[in-house]
Amino acid sequence: METFMTIVAGILLTIGTYLVLSRSLLRIILGLSIFSHGAHLMLLTMAGLKQGAAPLVGEQTGTYTDPLPQALILTSIVISFALTAFFLVLGYRTYVELGTDDMRELRGENDE
């Protein structure tokens, strides 16, 4: 299961990288978002997927699942959600101000 999830994370990172390398700003933002999801999946997978019962005192089993990666991934998802929201607004504002979302035209000139 871990191997499969690692491959899925790898595919997500590949898609993310591909989109980041494109010229349209919106594709870059979505690419970064998918890239983050790949990283999050990796974080969850690396610690080992479900190995036992829920980590509660009342559960009467010997093995428990490690709760820490889930706390970490939650934090990381919230952060990347906020960043994506900010980035989308910034992208829209850039489109309004500069009139383009093509990265080649956003290179800028030296005389500004």
Binding site: S36, G38, A39, S76, F87, L90, G91, R93, G108
Partner: peptide, 27 residues
């Protein structure tokens, strides 16, 4: 606006690599 786009993009990639590095180390 133009420079912020580049700055954010670079930093998101770096942060996500940070998360992946943390994941590896934790594993």
């Amino acid at each position: 606006l133009r420079e912020t786009i580049k700055y954010i993009a670079i930093n998101i990639v770096a942060s996500m690599l940070f998360v992946i590095a943390i994941a590896y180390l934790y594993a």
